[in-house]
Design a protein around this nucleic acid. Structure first.
Lengths: 232, 232
DNA sequence: GCGTCGACTTGATAAATGTTAAGCTGCGAA
DNA sequence: TTCGCAGCTTAACATTTATCAAGTCGACGC
């Protein structure tokens, strides 16, 4: 891996507290690759040979069963993914494909496990990261089980709006087909759901969303930090 | 905590490799309590003051939103729960209530975090535990998003059967109302789903389930280790 | 400009799931 | 024993969501 990439990775919470010696040993075995869009990086069920770190671009994590497919999450820079499979030395549970041109660092899983055994700070950082991941998935599960698709969309839009600094207008950051899959519905149903939110002041034009009356939408969506706040 | 409880807890993977000194310091601050059935041990949103370890009985983890409630998981001895909230010092995401008379150990969260900082072996054990929890929730999410309720029930029954040693008959281990909630459906729909599995040789009498033709049911259920095998 | 393609939308219809209400059944208390 | 109740089932109906089939629209290449 080019040394110019070291600082970005070193800044990641996961690597910031570990000993230099261990960090360098991880980096020596790692390499960086550029991938075009729509490349399948990982296939679920395969052994977890590498811990992946996305440096630029974006990656979709998805799963399939019996001819069906669903999008589980989207990964954006700079973060790792498939950490749990790496530390457990277990098969990947999700597949991964690039959504756009992406730069990705790959660290051999056995190196990660070796350093994890040797460096307590690294182990502790992994704990924090995994706890975060776990809590995020629990929130998604609550979202899926407790809300209708209309409510999921409404809360999704409010979260995006918050991310966009609270602006009344913002852009969806991926295609609607994928958004539908993330929210656990069909594209057709997503179209209808957007219509269903019009009475609460939501309008859409392509990828551009406008929330006319945030309070009105919130009265309907009833956002809850124990489901919608992914920072805690 | 009575010293007679130490060995059971010490055997838990989470505590088996840590230094004696640290284990004892955790136990000194801990205590054990017996709870009657239907007692709410934890309320979601509360600060995570204790790591809980269930020594006997069983505990339901559930969540609520907007007047709705869903069962997220059931915890059985001997294991910990609410580990992620403890290590992150973040609010509980789920509530917990005893299903039956239960004996539960409580370790102050701040003690866990302190020992976690001091003991690398403990930190590593927490990583393995959290990775396991994370992967389990991902599997549940795949189950929810990729399968219909009939398919979820069919695969649930096959998993239970495996747990029961492959016997053709076995007992459901909690009431159907709760099972319905775990599987993400209403009790009425669960009744219909059991009927819907009759053509595949499933019969039910109270809590007793009989799988007449396992292969036939498997042809319908299409179980997949990346969803249904909770040991990896 | 023209055609083509993919993303999205729309409407009609079907399937899955939830809701409401009623009734059954087994069990424990009076 | 009888009553009352909780858990479960059933049936009718309502709602939600998916599926299928057109149809619109805009981007792109030729």
């Amino acid at each position: 891996m080019p040394e110019s990439d070291y600082p970005d990775i070193r800044e990641l919470h996961l690597f910031s507290d570990m000993a230099d010696e261990h960090f360098l040993s991880l980096m020596r075995g790692a390499y960086v690759q550029n991938f075009p869009p729509q490349i399948e990086l990982i296939t679920e069920g395969d052994p977890s040979d590498f811990l992946h770190i996305i440096l630029s671009g974006s990656v979709d994590l998805f799963s399939t069963w019996n001819g069906r497919e669903t999008s589980m999450a989207t990964v954006r820079p700079i973060s790792t993914f498939i950490l749990a499979a790496t530390v457990k030395d277990a098969p990947y549970l999700m597949s991964a494909q690039t959504l756009e041109k992406s730069r990705i660092a790959l660290i051999p899983s056995q190196d990660v496990r070796a350093v994890f055994d040797a460096d307590g700070n690294f182990a502790r950082a992994i704990v924090t990261e995994l706890a975060q991941c776990y809590r995020s998935v629990v929130k998604v599960q609550k979202d899926l089980k407790l809300r209708t698709s209309l409510e999921r969309l409404a809360n999704y839009l409010l979260r995006k709006q918050k991310n966009a600094g609270g602006a009344a207008e913002f852009d969806l950051d991926y295609e609607k087909k994928r958004l539908a899959s993330v929210l656990g519905m069909t594209p057709e149903n997503l179209s209808r759901a957007f219509k269903g939110l019009q009475p609460y002041g939501v309008s859409v034009n392509g990828a551009r969303v406008r929330i006319g009356d945030q309070e009105d939408l919130e009265r309907f969506a009833k956002p809850n930090p124990l489901i919608d706040d992914f920072t805690t």
